[in-house]
Amino acid sequence: GATAVSEWTEYKTADGKTYYYNNRTEESTWEKPQELK
């Protein structure tokens, strides 16, 4: 299949934890999204 550009962006909180934000759905998660595995 075609490689889609991930909708997920990786961010870090002030205390250094990583989370992921989906630009399309406006969803955020602590877990690494399936698309990034």
Rank of each mutant, 00 (worst) to 15 (best):
E31I: 10
Y21I: 05
D15N: 07
A14E: 10
Y20Q: 00
N22S: 01
K32D: 05
E35I: 05
K32M: 09
L36W: 08
T25K: 02
E7F: 08
T25M: 03
Y19K: 05
T25A: 01
E27F: 03
A2W: 05
T18L: 10
T18D: 04
W8D: 00
V5N: 11
T13F: 03
G1P: 13
P33V: 01
E10V: 08
Y11N: 05
E27R: 03
L36E: 07
T18I: 14
E31K: 05
P33M: 02
Y19A: 05
R24W: 13
E7N: 06
A14W: 06
S6Y: 07
Y21R: 04
T29H: 05
T13N: 08
D15S: 07
Y19V: 08
K37V: 15
A2D: 13
K37N: 14
G16V: 00
K12E: 07
G16L: 01
E35G: 10
S6N: 12
Q34F: 12
T3V: 11
N22V: 01
N23L: 10
K32E: 09
A4W: 06
K32S: 05
A2H: 13
A14I: 10
Q34S: 13
E31W: 05
K17N: 08
P33T: 02
G1L: 13
K37E: 14
T18F: 12
V5H: 14
K12M: 11
N23I: 14
S6E: 12
T13R: 03
V5G: 11
E31L: 07
Q34D: 15
T18Y: 10
T29N: 04
V5T: 13
N22F: 00
E7V: 07
A2I: 13
E35W: 06
L36T: 07
S28E: 10
K12I: 12
W8L: 01
E27I: 05
A4K: 11
N22D: 03
V5Q: 14
E35Q: 09
L36P: 06
Y11F: 14
T3A: 12
L36M: 11
Y20P: 03
G16D: 05
L36F: 09
K17P: 01
A2Y: 10
P33F: 02
A14T: 13
E27G: 03
G1V: 14
W8S: 01
E7P: 06
G1A: 14
N22K: 00
P33I: 02
N23E: 14
T25Y: 02
Q34M: 12
S28G: 11
E31A: 05
T18G: 02
K12T: 13
K32H: 04
Y21K: 08
K37M: 15
Y21V: 12
T9S: 10
L36D: 09
E35V: 06
E10K: 04
R24G: 06
S28I: 15
A2F: 11
T13C: 13
T18W: 06
T18R: 05
T18A: 08
T18N: 06
Y21D: 03
S6W: 08
R24Y: 14
Y21Q: 04
N23R: 08
E10P: 04
E7T: 04
K32L: 09
S6H: 10
Y19C: 15
E7D: 12
D15C: 13
W30P: 07
E31F: 08
Q34E: 15
K32F: 06
W8F: 02
T29F: 06
S28P: 02
Y20I: 00
T13S: 07
A14S: 11
K17V: 08
Y19S: 02
K12Q: 11
E7H: 08
E27A: 04
W30T: 10
T3I: 14
T9D: 05
T9E: 11
E27Y: 03
E10W: 03
Q34I: 12
T25D: 01
W30I: 07
Y19T: 02
E27H: 04
E35F: 08
L36N: 07
R24S: 11
V5R: 10
E31G: 04
T3M: 13
E10A: 05
G16A: 01
E27N: 03
L36Q: 07
V5I: 11
A4M: 12
W30G: 05
A2Q: 13
T9W: 08
G16K: 00
N23K: 11
T25R: 02
E27M: 05
T29W: 05
P33N: 02
E7I: 07
E35C: 15
T29S: 11
T18S: 11
E10I: 07
T18E: 08
A2N: 12
N23Q: 13
Y21F: 09
T9F: 10
Y20E: 02
E26C: 15
E27D: 04
A14R: 08
E10D: 02
A2V: 11
A2M: 10
T13L: 04
Y20D: 01
Y19H: 04
V5F: 13
Y19Q: 04
Y20S: 00
N23V: 14
T13E: 03
D15I: 02
S28A: 10
Y19W: 12
Y11W: 06
D15L: 04
A4I: 13
E27Q: 08
Y20H: 00
K37C: 15
Y19N: 03
S28R: 15
A4R: 10
T29Y: 07
T29M: 09
E10Y: 03
T3G: 14
T9A: 11
T25S: 04
T13I: 01
T18P: 05
T3S: 14
W30E: 09
N23S: 15
K37A: 12
D15M: 04
E35M: 06
S28W: 15
T18K: 07
T29Q: 12
A14M: 08
Q34L: 12
G1M: 14
K37G: 14
T13D: 14
T9H: 11
S28Y: 15
G16Y: 01
S6A: 09
T3N: 13
T3F: 09
K32T: 09
Y20N: 00
A2P: 13
G16I: 00
R24M: 11
Y19G: 06
A4P: 12
Y21G: 02
W30N: 08
V5K: 14
A2S: 13
A4N: 13
V5D: 12
E10L: 04
K12R: 14
K17T: 09
W30H: 07
E7W: 06
K17L: 10
G16E: 03
Y20V: 00
K37L: 15
K12V: 14
E7R: 03
K17H: 09
E35Y: 07
Y21S: 01
S28N: 08
Y21W: 07
Y11P: 00
D15K: 03
K32R: 12
E7M: 05
N23W: 14
Y11M: 15
T9Y: 08
A14F: 03
Y20F: 06
A4L: 11
A14Y: 03
A4F: 06
D15R: 03
K37S: 14
E10G: 00
T9K: 10
G1N: 12
E31H: 06
K17S: 06
K17D: 09
S28Q: 11
K37Y: 14
D15A: 07
A2K: 11
A4H: 13
E10R: 03
Y11H: 15
E27W: 01
N23P: 08
V5A: 14
N22Y: 01
Y20L: 00
R24H: 10
G1Y: 10
T3K: 12
G1I: 14
T25F: 01
P33H: 02
D15P: 00
G1K: 13
T29D: 02
T29R: 15
S28V: 15
A2R: 13
T25G: 01
